[in-house]
């Protein structure tokens, strides 16, 4: 059997693959966090909860309404995004202009409330979501077996991240977003409805989290705490990548996923804290983050 550093290649590549899967979700979630933080200046602690809600919405669509995976990939982000929009309009908006701490506490409270509601209704146990028929099966890569669905998740997440990046960095809409991030008052004076933009941005960011949840449903158990266990790592990713940096969160998300996977191979006991060790190092050496601009 082929080995690398004394580790069978199949084990190594298997962990890298798991790392890429996790990294894909880190990237999708930290991307949304970065967009929201960039424009709204809100540290959206409810992001993991929206991811969890997305998974449940997708599961619910299938279970109660017979709506399958593909339509649910469209419906779930819309439903979660709409919920986010209502939350922004009715509550979050009131806290702009106050200290960060207030919006952080509000979104933290929302996360707890959402988790509580879902635990109350569905219990703490996990629900499983079947892999859609069109994505069942396994690719035999020779040195490892790659389930089709996992390959799809990696490719689809990368594509979504790329589209989001292009949208923000290369289009007129993105230019408005970047400008409003820099100087919302002037952008308003130019005749652009910035409050509406904030609502839509929040909706898009949490919609993205919902989409990630829908994509995660066939891989992980759909359970009320699936978001809270993830969100802490995602925050570390955002800090490492640099608050508000779009490309930073995407690259860092994937990188850390893989790094985590590799640590599992070489130093299993440390794998759970890899991300945080990296975070501490980055904070010490480059406080603005790997991709962040010093202010």
């Amino acid at each position: 059997m082929t080995e690398l550093f004394g580790v069978p290649l199949a084990v190594l590549s298997g962990q890298v693959m798991i790392g890429l899967i996790n990294g894909s979700f880190y990237a999708l979630l930290s991307l949304g966090l970065a967009i929201i933080f960039g424009l709204l200046n809100v540290i959206n602690f409810a992001h993991g909860a929206f991811y969890m809600v997305g998974a449940f919405v997708s599961w619910g669509l299938l279970t109660y309404a017979g709506v399958g995976y593909w339509p649910s990939l469209v419906l779930t982000p819309l439903i979660v995004g709409a919920f986010g929009a209502v939350f922004e309009r009715t509550m979050l908006r009131r806290l702009y202009g106050l200290d960060h701490l207030f919006s952080l506490l509000l979104t933290f409270g929302l996360a707890l409330a959402l988790e509580g509601v879902f635990r109350w209704i569905y219990g703490a146990g996990g629900k499983s979501y079947p892999v859609p028929p069109s994505l069942q099966g396994v690719y035999n890569l020779g040195f490892m077996m790659l389930p089709v669905y996992r390959a799809w998740v990696i490719v689809a997440s990368l594509a979504i991240c790329l589209v989001a990046w292009v949208l923000i960095e290369k289009t007129p809409l993105g230019a408005r977003l970047r400008a409003a991030t820099e100087n919302p008052k002037l952008v308003t004076a130019f005749g652009i409805n910035v409050p509406l933009m904030l609502t839509l941005t929040y909706a898009a960011g949490v919609g993205l989290a919902g989409l990630a949840g829908a994509m995660a449903a066939p891989i992980y158990q759909v359970s009320p705490n699936m978001g809270s266990s993830l969100i802490v790592i995602v925050f570390a990713v955002v800090v490492i990548g640099g608050m508000g940096s779009i490309m930073g969160s995407i690259v860092t998300g994937l990188m850390l996923g893989v790094l985590e996977g590799l640590t599992k191979v070489f130093f299993p006991t440390a794998s759970a804290i890899t991300v945080f060790i990296v975070m501490i190092l980055v904070l010490l050496l480059r406080p603005a983050g790997l991709f962040g601009k010093d202010k």
Partner: peptide, 25 residues
């Protein structure tokens, strides 16, 4: 149309993007 004292050119936008930013009213 408002041209502010500090000029308000956006650093995260190119010259072209700055030029095209304000909507046609």
């Amino acid at each position: 149309g408002f041209v502010p004292e500090e000029r308000g050119i956006f650093s995260s936008l190119t010259v072209r993007e700055n030029l095209m930013l304000p909507p046609v009213v």
